[in-house]
Design a protein around this nucleic acid. Structure first.
Lengths: 220, 220
DNA sequence: GTCTATAGTCGGATAGAC
DNA sequence: GTCTATCCGACTATAGAC
């Protein structure tokens, strides 16, 4: 971010960012041109250069913005769960319940169609050919995974950095992520038309049951 | 496929396909040019038009080829499981074991770095903005999901087309898929450098445990 | 800060020789 | 069937007026 982050009229910058979030998510980085972005934002090509340096700078700003939003909304939630599970006299049932809440909470954040609906495409792009934006994305996943892993570790009685605990945390998250990454397949298979509040709620019920099953059965 | 599917020298066509699989998977559809594809295949631009009509025709051929390969390798496996689980005197333990085998079998197919390593990118592309190639992909997923859902249905005692059973099947598959779609994140979090046979094997162990937990605990 | 104009490159598609 | 040569539109990046 060497370029001027401060600007008199922030409106153009914000509008550009808003348009780019939508366009990149839906068409992919290579799928949109800077001309189209500028036009859709009601401005011109040079505005991109001025505010973000170049196309990739705008892309990084998009990733940064989305990640920051997710982080802001999830941090207090995760923190609350953490403080709850770090009490000395916490019960196993509370621990299990906490993981369920983390997963279902994440699912609703992930699936509720808010700002930047289809950014799974950008996430996967970074997974396969990581750019400078990868670390930003990773830190958000890390936030969630670091919320889950220590609790799972306590439940199964293993160190939080053991491979098994971390694989387990990954798969728990994967159960929810698949509805973003393979959304069309999931909808068609289940027989849903949309992924609205009703469907998300039903999903959360199943996710919760399964998390509980995994953690309960394993801790025996 | 209106263009001549038969050709004297199939070598050029195959080479083009092979190169395109790799390139599309790694750089995305919009990320590679036809010139580059032709050059990497040791041929020229016109060969693409001749063999596949246009760039999108080549893309569809890529999806078709990969899907066919996956289908060919998975079909007999799924069929074997199916015949085993449809015996009248099948035990619940056998049913649970069958689902575990389907998931771990799928995981090894999915994660073993063979032909078309990074095609998750193309899959997700189709999920967000389905093209004509979506149906081809979907039929492969359907093959697996239709292998899993009826068995899950028997275990939990619900109809195979109930929403809960289908959501469950989706999440079971999601546990494995996340290591393809979020590979870089998974590797970094777990602390692995590669996703080799040793790691896949460890993954299968955990997946198997968790499938068993989900199905065992739910059937009570 | 915001704009127009333009440079330079590369995209996919095509015509036509062999 | 495979090649060369070429068209034309779209891309990113930049220079410079206001």
């Amino acid at each position: 971010m060497a370029k001027p982050e401060q600007s008199g009229t922030v409106l153009t910058r914000d509008k550009l960012l808003e348009v780019a979030i939508d366009a990149f998510a839906n068409a992919g980085y290579e799928g949109v041109g800077t001309r189209e972005l500028a036009e859709r934002a009601g401005t011109n090509l040079s505005a991109i250069r001025y505010h973000f340096g170049d196309k990739e700078g705008l892309y990084r700003a998009v990733i940064q913005h989305i990640s920051q939003g997710v982080q802001d909304r999830m941090s207090p939630f995760i923190e609350r769960i953490r403080s709850r599970t770090e009490r000395p006299n916490v019960t196993r049932e509370e621990l299990i319940d906490s993981v369920c809440q983390l997963i279902t909470g994440f699912a609703s954040q992930l699936l509720a169609s808010g700002v930047g609906d289809n950014w799974a495409r950008l996430v996967v792009r970074e997974q396969i050919k990581p750019t400078k934006a990868f670390d930003v994305m990773y830190s958000v996943f890390r936030l969630l995974l670091d919320g889950i892993a220590p609790i799972v570790a306590k439940i199964v009685g293993q160190p939080p950095d053991s491979e098994e605990v971390r694989i387990c945390a990954m798969t728990l998250v994967g159960q929810a992520l698949v509805f973003r990454t393979h959304r069309a397949t999931a909808l068609k298979f289940i027989g849903w038309n949309t992924l609205g509040p009703k469907q998300i709620s039903e999903l959360q019920t199943v996710l919760s049951k399964q998390c509980r099953a995994i953690l309960t059965f394993r801790s025996r």
